[in-house]
Nucleic acid binder design. Structure first.
Lengths: 358, 358
DNA sequence: CTGAAAGCGCTTACAG
DNA sequence: CTGAAAGCGCTTACAG
């Protein structure tokens, strides 16, 4: 007899499980209900641990679930419930050691709130950031943690109005009012450069990232402030901004280290720049002092140890994610956007304490 | 007049957007259809760029989309279409520099196939791995790339039967037949240890991860093979396996470096162990040779440079993800599980070429 | 070229 | 304690 009890709703000629078919052919609550001889709602109650099911009924449903290998389709559930229990994280590059701990911290907070994390790398491309962010919104993530690549986020306004929680980290949002969690880039850089000045340097180079990146601009501002505080006029040839690829950085470093009045110290604007400059300095004939923004692994074991302005990537991620869930878990009263700034820490290891050598 | 044209289906007293409500109150295709004065299917056609809509109709629909700020709910779309265009990646710890590039590589392949990536850290806990994997299956990811924490993956069999693509990376699947992408852990370790032997060492220590982890066991096997090939009997006190936390590793290293017949060289079983051992050796009175499994940043700048057996984390991720989409994009013919092994590379930088010092 | 009806797999709001 | 009906926001399969 065609159309058995358990699969009455499925034609016998339904294609077998294979790539391209609907989820193989997974059993649904309807299948479980048919097999257990109960209603759909009863299965739902058992699956979700809701009360009001007799032990005997429950047992029959559980047996059917086991026999069929049923697993609730959370994707369907979500459509009905409204919340997807997932958040998105858009960062520059998952492979960058700075973002690993940040990402992990966001994940831990999400996990504590029962949410999954969807990760995406913008590759520092504003168009790709936007594409990713909107794709995640289309998937209806509950919230988005964004490390901005672009400087105009008005494209997210409709999403925010629609109720998507949003927090920007590491760099502020562009042209919209939103929660932001930053390191004290200005203060950290100023302290790092002041540290070099305190050790007798006056010709200090600054090699940073592209100036359109907020952190790069802020750190440069810190450099200028420290120099100005010390009454040292800055020669523009001491400053080099641009991509952080090794070739560009190498050339920049070699240039400011040569000529009649070379710099005696360098302040590097982020971890990738620091690594390349360390390589250049290791082959340089005379000692040059170095302070780098961002900590790097093994910095303490180099000769000399690398002095850095360290920021706490995990704390940035954690703070941002907590802020996100604050928006999400609120009672509906609007949470006013805030700007949270985390302190940096000067870690002295030797390279920043070298005296100037002419 | 209550119930205007555009929102005829929404009661006037519908709660305003706030946390907890359904997606704020996003417009749906139905809203767009009402506003444009067309049918639902026409909106669907325009949104999905399907043919068969007159320019004039299309314009009206586009205007309604703009005015309402409509964005298609991909989560609903997915329910109907079957494929979610998302894959999951379960790894040990996103913050570990080894997994960053691997994860990024998986993301790039996913992106090329139009899929999003959901990341989860197992924290080396089999229970957490299972919880995560099943949660992702409940979300109906199309496929799963798993770096196993546990050694029994039979719990995934129903999911595989249901059509979820699955590839294991870095470590093999436990007790199920599935695609696996590995580095040549045995061969790499054997070569690394043979390299130390070739430089005159006989008392060589091995400090590795917990033996239940496949990579740790394989690398130890490589160590033993190299020693046996050279006819060197291994003293068990030269071998230390366990957690990779700095304290444990430090004690293990100090122990085998002390006593009447200390080791003259150490082979370290992964990047975290290597870093700690470098710290120990930097304070040790006499030079000790070192070869580490996994490359580490700045290894070339240390004194001496650190010789390593490098594996290509990005290639592992890329290969695994490509294999996953091979399963997914297939024509339905079953793809037989394969075991793919990627070569490692011995990178000589100095520490592995030090002669034995008694 | 266009649209009404049915359905994806669940939950909600009710009614018994 | 239990279940039939309606609905979440889309797409599919048809019919005009």
């Amino acid at each position: 007899m065609p159309g058995t009890a358990s699969r009455a709703d499925r034609p016998a000629d339904r294609p077998a499980a294979h790539a391209g078919s609907r989820y193989g052919n997974r059993p649904t609550m309807k299948d479980v209900a048919a097999r257990a001889g109960v209603g759909l709602k009863t299965v739902s109650r058992v699956v979700n641990g809701e009360p009001g099911v007799t032990p005997d009924t429950e047992r029959r449903v559980q047996e059917a679930i086991q026999a069929l290998g049923f697993r609730r389709n959370d994707s369907a559930r979500v459509l009905r419930k409204g919340r997807t229990a997932s958040i998105g994280l858009i960062l520059e590059d998952l492979a960058d050691p700075f973002y690993g701990p940040l990402s992990r911290a966001v994940e831990e907070v999400a996990r504590a709130h029962g949410a999954l994390l969807i990760n995406g790398s913008s590759a520092e491309d504003p168009a790709r950031e936007q594409e990713l962010a909107l794709a995640l919104c289309a998937r209806r993530v509950d919230g988005l943690v964004v490390i901005p690549a672009g400087d105009d986020h008005r494209y997210l306004e409709p999403e925010i109005r629609a109720g998507v929680a949003m927090v920007f980290v590491d760099r502020p949002a562009g042209r919209i009012d939103a929660d932001v969690v930053l390191s004290d880039n200005f203060g950290g850089a100023r302290d790092g450069v002041a540290h070099l000045i305190a050790h007798g340097h006056r010709r200090i180079g600054f090699i940073g990232d592209m100036p359109r990146i907020h952190t790069a601009a802020e750190r440069l501002r810190g450099y200028r402030a420290a120099m100005e505080d010390a009454g040292i006029p800055v020669a523009e040839k001491w400053i080099s901004l641009g991509a952080t690829d090794p070739e560009r950085v190498r050339r920049a470093a070699e240039e400011m280290l040569s000529g009649p009045e070379p710099v005696t110290a360098v302040f590097t604007g982020n971890n990738r720049v620091t690594v390349t400059v360390i390589r250049v300095l290791s082959r340089h004939p005379r000692p040059v002092a170095l302070v780098g923004f961002d900590d790097i692994e093994l910095a303490d074991l180099l000769q000399p140890g690398v002095t850095v302005v360290a920021q706490d990537a995990a704390a940035l991620g954690r703070t941002a994610a907590e802020r996100l869930f604050l928006q999400l878990d609120g009672d509906g009263t609007h949470v006013a956007p805030e700007r949270i700034e985390l302190p940096t820490r000067l870690v002295m290891r030797g390279s920043g304490e070298l005296p100037p050598v002419e």
